[in-house]
Simulated assay, not measured.
Amino acid sequence: MPEMLTLPVKTEPAENRPKEFSAYLVRPDGPPKGAVVLIHEIWGLVEHIKDVADRFAAEGYLVIAPDLLSSIGIEPSIGLELAAIMTSTDERVRAEGQPRLREAFTPMHVPEYGAWAVSALRSCVDYLAARPGVAGRIAVVGFCFGGSYSFALAAADGRVAAAVPFYGSPPELGQVHTITSPILAFYGEEDERLMQSLPEVSAAMQAAGVDFTSKVYEGAGHAFFNDTNVHTYRPEIAEDAWRRTLDFLAVSLGAV
């Protein structure tokens, strides 16, 4: 059965940063094929992410999905409120909601927050690595905000054996040489900002000797995997990305 955990931050947090955080844990029915750190979108640990965690567990993986945003005031209920503003088809709602969005998201852009979040993610790896049969078979998967932090965790922790960032921004390109795991990165061709940076990212990964594979989907933009977003969800593409992710994890974690 799924449960909520409280975990300590791995390193001493900066002043005013929480010393612990919550995470959603779900176990497979039998011995795990491996483990997955699942990182949410910018909306936080909403039900959609818990559903994805459940899907990974049904495939045989032990999954931990940390809540990285409640520490800065974005509880899941607030995340849903912010998502409704940003994805509204009503231009007036989006325009009037901009101050609310800026206020909510500003705290995550300071360097201290990024360091705290990576420390929290490394604590998730600590927890998984201590579970029977999991050490050496830990992957990270994330979406949008979580895709960016999937890159960051892979760069920060050599225990990560595979990384699957969905439409995420990579760490500073000068830091990619610290990545030791293979990476399978998904993008939508209509996600203009990330598509513009992808050639440079690919070149930096190649120069650093990182096993980096990108899959770009035609007719898709940002958040194509999120089946709760009627504006961006692309069912056939999401299903293809899911199957590719499972195949990649099976090979990378030795679960074939």
Rank of each mutant, 00 (worst) to 15 (best):
P99M: 06
K215R: 15
D211I: 02
I179R: 04
A129V: 00
F224H: 04
P2H: 05
M86T: 09
L69Q: 04
G114T: 07
D211A: 13
N226P: 06
G97N: 10
K33C: 00
I78V: 14
V140Q: 01
A155P: 02
P32Q: 14
E91N: 07
G221K: 09
I183A: 08
L80C: 02
V26P: 05
E59W: 04
P28V: 04
T11I: 01
E81Q: 15
Q98Y: 05
G146V: 02
Y233W: 13
M86V: 07
E3S: 15
A23V: 01
A139C: 03
V251N: 11
E172Y: 09
S169I: 01
R92W: 00
Y24K: 06
T245G: 09
P2E: 10
A115V: 12
S88Y: 08
R243C: 01
F225C: 06
A83Y: 08
S77D: 14
A156M: 01
A35M: 05
P170S: 05
S197R: 14
A58H: 12
V164M: 09
V256G: 13
M4F: 11
I78N: 11
L82P: 02
Q196P: 00
P182S: 12
L69M: 10
G254P: 10
R159M: 08
F143H: 02
Y233I: 04
V93G: 05
A139T: 01
Q206S: 14
L101P: 02
V134K: 08
A117P: 02
A155Q: 14
L7H: 09
C124E: 11
P171S: 05
S71V: 15
K50V: 00
V201I: 13
D227S: 05
Y127C: 00
G97P: 06
A250K: 13
S88G: 05
A162E: 10
Y61T: 01
P199Y: 07
L101C: 06
A135Q: 13
D240W: 10
Y113I: 06
L184R: 10
V256H: 13
V37I: 09
I138R: 09
F145G: 00
V46T: 14
E189H: 14
R234A: 13
F145Q: 03
V141Q: 05
D247V: 12
A130G: 10
K50E: 11
T180G: 15
E112A: 14
A207Q: 12
E41G: 12
A207D: 13
F56Q: 02
A53Y: 00
A162D: 11
I179A: 01
S148I: 00
D51C: 01
A135L: 09
S150D: 06
V93I: 12
G254V: 04
G60S: 11
E81W: 06
D126K: 04
S252D: 10
G219W: 12
E112P: 04
V164R: 08
S77P: 00
F151E: 03
V216P: 07
P165W: 12
N16W: 01
L101K: 11
A120T: 03
Y167G: 04
E192I: 11
V176Q: 11
A120P: 02
D29Y: 03
G188L: 06
P99F: 05
P165C: 05
A84Q: 09
P165S: 03
L68P: 04
A162N: 05
S214P: 10
